[in-house]
Design a protein around this nucleic acid. Structure first.
Lengths: 209, 209, 209, 209
DNA sequence: AATGAATGAGACTTCATTCAT
DNA sequence: TATGAATGAAGTCTCATTCAT
């Protein structure tokens, strides 16, 4: 179910997982905050360790390398986002029209990507392609969710049958992912962003629609 | 026209500007290639200097800092892109319908972003938000071009009057910029990408269109 | 008999010495294997502990320091070697001529130094002079055995009376100790090595002999 | 002629080789001194750099890695030793009997291995097998010199024809190399060592000789 | 007996930058 | 214009060791 979880170190052992996980999560959270607020280069093992109040070397008790930390952050971010969006959409009544499902998904996605309390979800945009590559698998899972979502619209005839989902899904996600970058979040209401995206996505920008 | 030109070192002074510029351009080109092919972290002052066949310290005769190099690359990339796209669109007869202008712009934009011979144009995606911020001004110029383009469509009634360009322009650009990332360039024809983008942008994905 | 025994931790106290010793030996064996197969630097407290299936910190219940481990290995190696060689020689009938005693000693020494199942005996060559210094006492015991052996030859007139044993004994041992290093053990029969050593030692390399 | 020389970095460029080499040599010398006097582990990049009065990072201008330094020391040591011994032997009149050639070679070898002013020549015994392996080639050259030397003795009938040089040469060298270890250099005259080695090597230890 | 977690010292290395020549 | 040599700050990581539990 959780694809990266299985890749985690089996260190924790028996029941003390609570405590163990606390430190691990703390490290991930701290690193994510650093990346998002100060930039990727400012996220050093030393700066991370300071935020968690341990010494730099101690990080290596919990992770094998800085890379492991970064990759786990990246994937956890995507996983969390998937969870949030999926849950929100699945909460909707089965009869909900596609456009409303879409709106819901877009809304949650953008909200999350902009929420300062969820640094893990914003890390992605700060990473270099070289690192991003290590998140392909998880990211594909997320893209697949969107493809499914739209495919359902196709099935009910609410979406054009000839739409190539393999092209369209990543395309729309690219636009959404950069919301924090292009929308001056301070001065734009999320609802306006969502409305614009949903409206143009469904009906396009030509007046005939 | 060249907004960063004023930031250049006033050193050149005499008449040998030709020679000077050659080296400058060489450095920028080399750095861009490195960033694109090996990743931002692999682009060090030394690796750059090797590609230009000089020693690391000599770079400082041409640039004040690495930052200057990177920022200039970034901005030059955007400027070149703007030039390419603008020229292509302006070449069209004045009577060209909006949808064809759009198609032209999208085509050139995507082609450039994917062209391995134009590393400067691909650097942007490899940069961290922290650095990207230093390219706001030039990037705004490029966004303004797109806003203008669409605004013309509005003026002729080919585009819905209520479209908020301040939101829509950066949104569509985000999707386009990441084309190299989401479209498996090896297996997808650029024409297909362009068609999909133009079609959904104009008419949306609902079947009514 | 066991000169390092007195250096051991007095912890064991009670009666569970059997169990205790088992772990101690296991640790020493594991460390020796590591040193011999992966090199001295690869022998860390953690790598040792992994081989014994305990955690690094637990090693300190059995030993005070890594140094203690290494020194004990080194000395145990020498002690074992002494035991082996001495037993082999003492098994010989009292009337055995010197040359055959020598041959026996050389044979056992070289065989042991080359035997992959006796890592403790091969550790010595992997140590730095700084550490080796801590094994002087035990090593002197071993050298004394050889001096005695040759002295017996002197006593029976089978060896030249003017030979300075304090110089010669360590000299010949140096050559023997490095057998694994200089003899390509894969392609040389131990018997050939022994024959060469004994022959040249007894009669020299000049043809007159 | 000099097998490692060609492996050196071609950095120096044109004529300033004198200055360049000075620093390089200084670094090697300093490192060798550290290894010999304080042990291999005490020879860190920092401690080396302190002795040369530069900062640790600056060492990397002259060498690519610590390994390169150590390996070069090791090989330079062997090469120098070869030079010394070969020169000394070749100085002898062509008519010099084998035993005197041998004595000369042994003398120079042992003297060098014991001379505190030639730290490079003593480094070898402080190295781990893992590192030593990287010196095989050069060391083979040295062993070959000794094989040649003895082979000449064979040719003139001064040495037994049936002696297996592939076994004997490395064997005798092992003993000689450890001279500093086994001979208490403070209290033993080098001449006595040499005499013992030459005498027993030529005539063996049996009285018949 | 053993472990989980951490420490502190220090290892090697990289890199942008400087500057006399 | 360019270089050789160095710097200083910082980076990631390793390791022997400690100690409360």
């Amino acid at each position: 179910m959780n694809q990266t979880a299985s890749a985690r170190k089996p260190r924790k052992g028996r029941g003390s997982a609570g405590q163990e996980n606390a430190t691990r999560e703390g490290i991930l959270e701290a690193a994510a905050q650093l990346i998002v607020s100060e930039g990727f280069n400012a996220c050093t093992m030393r700066s991370i360790s300071q935020r968690v109040n341990i010494k730099a070397g101690s990080l290596y008790y919990h992770f094998d390398s800085k890379d492991e930390i970064v990759v786990e952050i990246m994937n956890k971010g995507t996983e969390t986002l998937l969870e949030q969006v999926r849950n929100a959409v699945e909460e909707l009544p089965a009869s909900t029209p596609f456009v409303d499902r879409l709106r819901r998904a877009v809304h949650v996605h953008v909200s999350c990507k902009v929420d300062r309390d969820l640094p893990l979800l914003q890390v992605y945009e700060h990473l270099t392609p070289v690192i991003k590559r290590q998140g392909r698998v998880v990211r594909k899972t997320y893209a697949d969710f969107w493809k499914d979502l739209i495919a359902q619209g196709k099935a009910t005839g609410e979406i054009r049958a000839d739409l190539d989902l393999d092209l369209f899904a990543p395309y729309i996600l690219s636009g959404l992912n950069r919301a924090p970058e292009w929308a001056n979040v301070e001065h734009t209401r999320i609802e306006d962003i969502v409305d614009m995206v949903v409206e143009t996505t469904m009906n396009g920008i030509s007046p005939g629609a």
